[in-house]
Design a binder for these strands. Structure first.
Length: 799
RNA sequence: GCGGGUGUGGCGGAAUUGGCAGACGCGCAAGAUUCAGGUUCUUGUGGGGGCAACUUCGUGAAGGUUCAAGUCCUUUCACCCGCACCA
């Protein structure tokens, strides 16, 4: 039976809104469940079916948990600062505030149309003054704690967006926002010292329940490596060259050293270097290359030997040459390496090209052909000779270096400090004042929020400075410390700032005195379950874990880690199997689906289409299948009868169990399939009781809340279905009294028999042998072995 | 190159972790309803063989362990994702 979904959905959305049944309660005595989904960036394009899938997972879990008696916090908000809005504002001359408000209104109405059970009383907007006041407050606290600094470095710069990007935002040499080629630019920029938290972020992973691949990605991103620092004395000067290595065991095999082209020692000893012109020429060439060209394209080793300075190997006192080459990066370790061509592929390539000696120090490979990186017996290594394992050799060498005072154990991370700024308008102003006398001074806490001033022209300056720099009334200020004239910082924070703590604000969104009260935080935090996209696993998640851990360290939040559990949904691909994109024209608009099939169908389909964590293509005809399912459910009213069909009882207990367990494991597709199977059984049976239909709609309610509320009401159910208790099952009733099991002879399936469920092994085997067909096949054969797996199978091995 | 993952019908995908492979849905075929199209309902639907009961092959490929393998082991191929000259 077709039902009027448009009318039903509107009716119940209004009723829910009016009654406020999805508001999290302030009753802190109830068990809590905090479910978090990544709040959207309110773009002009509106919502995408991907958003629907991303939110539907925890939506279903939240609805079920409410019915199970939890006080559920399932909030939503808007991550509204960012470049697309600003670019749109530049193009159309509309203020970003107006664009943002318009987009938020659009998203809100779309989300409500789908019937998500968000707590709309706790909406957070990162561009709201009451919100970004606390974003600035956290920044100020970090500034006070010495975690904020400025440095002139080569930065990733997008000439199109005219902004500096973090390493995370410029992966693959492309701008994450507009995808144009990144160039390297020397610039004075803000950094957050996230590397100071590298170990804490790594250790924190041991305490949380993230999907294994998510944990691994974060571990790789932080990239901790253990090794040693060692100082190689330089000939002709009092200084030594410091290197980092993970293989101190190979030190007797060092035949040269390599430093990064930007290494400061070149400038320092310019006068002593005989071939400084050649070095300068090489360095200039390197500077022209983008980071992308340097790391991705150029696998051929290039370099120049430094003449006039040499190094001394602290292991054996040998004098060795030093080269500059761009295969050594200034940004990792010390920007200098000891090269062991026999046991490192890169050093091997370099040595081959420049004709440098290759000394084997570990047996096991053929160094005439290639570098050997495996384990083996130490040779040509003085006091290390004869040692069999890498571990032991490393320990011995470290001992030696420490004794002589030329090296020590060390740890390095791949993760770099976080470039924290944008030279654009639509972001949180950085609350810092530059005073000619006092230097950098934080804007006093009582002056926060430092409001974004009204601007007419959002175009960034040609030199890459923020539009704020053009506003004299904003820039000119007095120093909070000495009262003298000073200039205000005009950079704004990057997009990731506002999203680094939004989950805390949800706990207490209207608090004017704190970012959230400790009381609320103690009750709600940590987030019990956070679901989002894989693309945010390394950036947003690492950043927010860092902020949260910092807030813990200053006593502002009660727990170390913000997220107890993290999962990720798979992409929805276009009907053609490609990633949905405007340019391919394969984007599905959720509004269109709701118009034609209704919100319940959309919700059921995005969860039924496949494994929640995997990518799956959109299929219009499968959507129709879900529509058919709900139409058939809507018709169940017609076959409600007073008499109970005993066949259905076991089926109901089984389904309650299956749906309950599957939802908790995010196996939504099989939960829905189980409900479809039950529906088929009901149809076969021809009737069901009112109580059974009530149970059915409870199970379906988290997936299709509108239709099920309607059926509940028509059955005379009390109150909202969404507020009733989740069904229970009786384990003993989940199995039929009589079960069908398979009978195999020598492992080959030969038939099936019906046996009572609690039958003994002997009886089961006897029953199998009594089967006419089986008996015939066994005739004249000798039975070797008899196997009975309860409830599964009988296998008779016969010769 | 390193790390992780995935390969099951025409398609999306199931399979209590070693126990009847293909649940559920789509699609397709036949029939019913309908003036007709659509909708809805019924039945069938992995491949080969057979009128049939049945039989045989079958989870990317090849080998192995086991009474029993999609699932465990070895080798191998293809695709996807992340990182990438990280010393």
């Amino acid at each position: 039976m077709k039902y009027d979904f448009a009318a039903i959905e509107k009716k119940w959305q209004d009723k829910w809104d009016e009654a406020g049944i999805f508001r999290a309660s302030d009753d802190h005595t109830k068990p809590k469940f905090y479910a978090l989904v990544e709040f959207p960036y309110p773009s002009g394009a509106g919502m995408h079916v991907g958003h629907i899938k991303a939110y539907s997972g925890l939506e279903v879990i939240s609805r079920k948990r409410r019915m199970q008696g939890y006080n559920v916090l399932f909030p939503i908000g808007f991550d509204a600062y960012g470049l697309p809005t600003e670019n749109y504002a530049i193009k159309t001359g509309t203020h970003p505030r107006i664009v943002t408000d318009r987009n938020i209104a659009k998203f809100t109405s779309q989300l409500k149309r789908v019937g998500f059970s968000f707590d709309w009383s706790r909406v957070v907007d990162t561009t709201d003054e009451g919100y970004y006041k606390w974003t600035q407050w956290i920044f100020r606290k970090m500034f006070d704690a010495g975690l904020v600094f400025r440095a002139t470095t080569l930065v990733n710069y997008c000439p199109h967006c005219k902004v500096v990007l973090s390493n995370e935002d410029s992966q693959g040499g492309k701008c994450d926002i507009c995808h144009s080629e990144i160039v390297q630019k020397s610039k004075d920029v803000w950094y957050l010292r996230i590397t100071a938290y590298a170990d804490k972020l790594l250790e924190g992973l041991e305490k949380v329940d993230y999907l294994p691949n998510i944990k691994l990605m974060q571990q790789n991103w932080i990239g901790r490596s253990e090794g040693a620092f060692a100082n190689f004395a330089l000939t002709g000067c009092d200084e030594s060259l410091r290197i980092y290595t993970t293989r101190p065991d190979t030190m007797f095999g060092v035949t040269f050293m390599v430093i990064a082209p930007e290494h400061p020692i070149i400038e320092k000893y310019r006068d002593r270097i005989a071939n400084i012109d050649a070095l300068d020429a090489y360095r200039e060439e390197c500077a022209k290359k983008t980071e992308f060209e340097r790391t991705q394209l150029v696998k051929d080793k290039t370099g120049v030997r430094i003449e006039g300075i040499a190094a001394v190997n602290p292991a054996n006192g040998r004098e060795i040459p030093i080269y500059i080459s761009d295969y050594v990066m200034m940004g990792y370790g010390t920007g200098a390496i000891m090269a062991v061509p026999a046991h490192d592929e890169r050093d091997y390539d370099f040595a081959k090209k420049f004709g440098i000696e290759i000394i084997e120090v570990i047996k096991g490979g053929d160094i005439a052909k290639e570098a050997y990186t495996g384990d083996g017996e130490m040779v040509n290594s003085g006091f290390l000779n004869g040692i069999q394992t890498k571990k032991e050799a490393i320990a011995k060498m470290l001992e030696y270096l420490e004794e002589k005072g030329v090296g020590e154990r060390g740890v390095q991370y791949k993760m770099k400090d976080w470039a924290f700024n944008r030279q654009r308008y639509w972001g949180e102003p950085i609350p810092i004042v530059h005073c000619p006398k006092c230097g950098m001074v934080g804007v006093p806490y009582e002056e926060l929020p430092l409001k974004l001033p009204p601007v007419e022209n959002f175009e960034p300056g040609e030199g890459g400075e923020s539009p704020l720099a053009k506003i004299e009334s904003f820039v000119n200020c007095t120093c909070p410390k000495c009262g003298g004239p000073a200039r205000r910082e005009t950079d704004t924070m990057p997009q990731w700032a506002g999203s680094s703590w939004y989950f805390l604000r949800y706990c207490d969104p209207h608090n004017e005195n704190e970012l959230a009260s400790m009381d609320a935080l103690k009750y709600w935090m940590p987030v019990d379950w956070y679901n989002g996209g894989m693309e945010h696993v390394t950036r947003h998640m690492i950043y927010s874990r860092f902020w949260h851990r910092f807030l813990y360290d200053i006593g502002a939040v009660p727990c170390e880690e913000p997220y107890a559990k993290r999962t990720a949904q798979g992409l929805i691909l276009g009907p053609d199997g490609d990633k949905m994109s405007k340019s391919k024209g394969n984007v599905v608009d959720p509004n269109d689906v709701v118009d034609v099939y209704g919100a319940d169908v959309l919700r059921v389909y995005v969860l039924f289409m496949g494994d929640y964590a995997s990518a799956a293509p959109w299929s219009e005809s499968s959507v129709k299948g879900c529509k058919r399912f709900l139409d058939r459910v809507a018709a169940l009213n017609e076959i409600v009868s007073g008499r109970e069909n005993p066949k259905l009882e076991v089926m109901f207990h089984k389904t309650v169990k299956k749906v309950t367990e599957d939802i908790d494991e995010m196996k939504f597709n099989t939960a829905i399939a189980a409900l479809m199977t039950l529906l088929n059984e009901i149809t076969d049976a021809g009737s069901l009781t009112k109580e059974q239909l009530m149970t059915f709609v409870k199970l379906l309610n988290p997936f299709a809340p509108h239709l099920t509320e309607e059926i509940w009401e028509s059955l005379g159910g009390h109150g909202f279905l969404a507020e009733t208790a989740w069904p229970e099952w009786d384990e003993a009733k989940t199995v039929d009294d009589e079960i069908e099991i398979a009978v195999q002879i020598s492992g080959k399936l030969k038939g099936t028999i019906l046996i009572p469920k609690d039958i003994s092994k002997d009886d089961a085997i006897a029953a199998a042998k009594a089967d006419e067909k089986i008996a015939g096949l066994l005739a004249g054969k000798q039975i070797v072995k008899e196997i009975y797996v309860p409830g599964k199978i009988v296998n008779i091995v016969a010769k």
